[in-house]
């Protein structure tokens, strides 16, 4: 009986192994698929409003981007300040 049970449980597992492998794979591939989060345009707009309170900048001189690789996400904010203070502010998070 025990031998029979052994074979039964082994057999019953092949579909569940497949399911588990697929679930991990699909979750992983979906994480890669998401590119631009929906909050990014609003974030950019609000940041622009805050910065404009202190420095006058051209809206086109500000870029917000989010990059993803396997281990981390990098939110990059790039602002070109106007002529009188020609510095480049760069913040990485």
């Amino acid at each position: 009986m025990r031998l029979l049970d052994f074979f039964r449980t082994r057999r019953a597992s092949s579909a569940s192994v497949a399911k588990e492998r697929l679930q991990i794979l699909v979750a992983h591939e979906h994480a890669h698929r998401k590119r631009t989060p929906s909050y990014l345009p609003l974030l950019q707009k609000e940041l622009l409003a805050v910065i404009s309170k202190y420095v006058k900048i051209n809206p086109d001189d500000m870029k917000v981007s989010l990059e993803q690789n396997e281990h981390e996400e990098i939110l990059e904010l790039n602002i070109v300040l106007p002529e009188e203070s020609p510095k480049k502010a760069r913040k990485t998070n």
Binding site: R11, A12, S13, S14, A15, S16, K19, V26
Partner: peptide, 17 residues
């Protein structure tokens, strides 16, 4: 084959996708 556990079931595939 699904009953024997050799094949993904309808529910499995629906859940994954």
């Amino acid at each position: 084959r699904v009953k024997r556990g050799d094949m993904l079931s309808v529910e499995d595939v629906q859940e994954i996708l």
